Simulated assay, not measured.
Amino acid sequence: MGRRRTFDVDEVVAAAADLFARRAYDGVSVDDLVTRLGVHRNSLYGVFGSKRGLYLAALRHHIEHEVRPHLGRAVQPDHVPEWDLLLVAAVDRALDDPEVADLVSSIFAELDEATGDPRATEALLGRWLRRRPVMAKEI
């Protein structure tokens, strides 16, 4: 009989999403995940299968909890999304990982639908990019 899990999967996934958003996929090692998340390596592999498995879980969690609930606000001119993991995934992983590309493309299509105009999506992404260096200074 295996050991009982001693961590909350949702909390670990949310913390991993934050770490991947700040440092991108290749900037986070398994050792970083073990240290920062407080999860044993065997537990990480047992639950998520791999670093990529945790990354995909983190990206899906981010989309479901941080992106989709706020799509309607995207049309507000003062809205700057806090969708760092989604946007980092779009530029960092989507070119090399078809599953990430599908997730990113799908949510961008939902964003286009929510705004009613792909140019609104582009403007929103531009606001995020302009705000990003300011946010980095605040960290």
Rank of each mutant, 00 (worst) to 15 (best):
D102C: 14
H70F: 07
I107P: 01
V104G: 12
V88M: 04
L125Y: 02
P98N: 11
L44F: 04
H70P: 02
L85N: 01
V34T: 05
L44R: 09
D84W: 03
H79L: 13
D78A: 14
W83N: 05
P118W: 04
G126I: 04
E113Y: 01
R93W: 06
V34H: 07
L103Q: 08
E110W: 01
L33S: 09
A94T: 14
V104E: 03
V100A: 06
G72W: 01
V104L: 08
V91M: 14
G116F: 00
E64Q: 00
A89T: 12
D117K: 10
V34K: 08
P69H: 00
Y45H: 12
P81S: 12
A120S: 09
G27R: 09
D102Q: 05
G53W: 02
E110D: 10
D92I: 11
E66F: 05
E64I: 00
D78I: 03
D32Y: 06
L33P: 04
W83Y: 02
L87C: 11
D112W: 01
L33R: 06
N42I: 10
H40Q: 13
T115N: 03
D26G: 06
A57P: 04
G38A: 12
G72N: 07
G49F: 09
R127S: 05
V47C: 06
V30T: 10
V80S: 02
L33G: 15
L37D: 09
R68W: 00
E113Q: 04
A109Y: 03
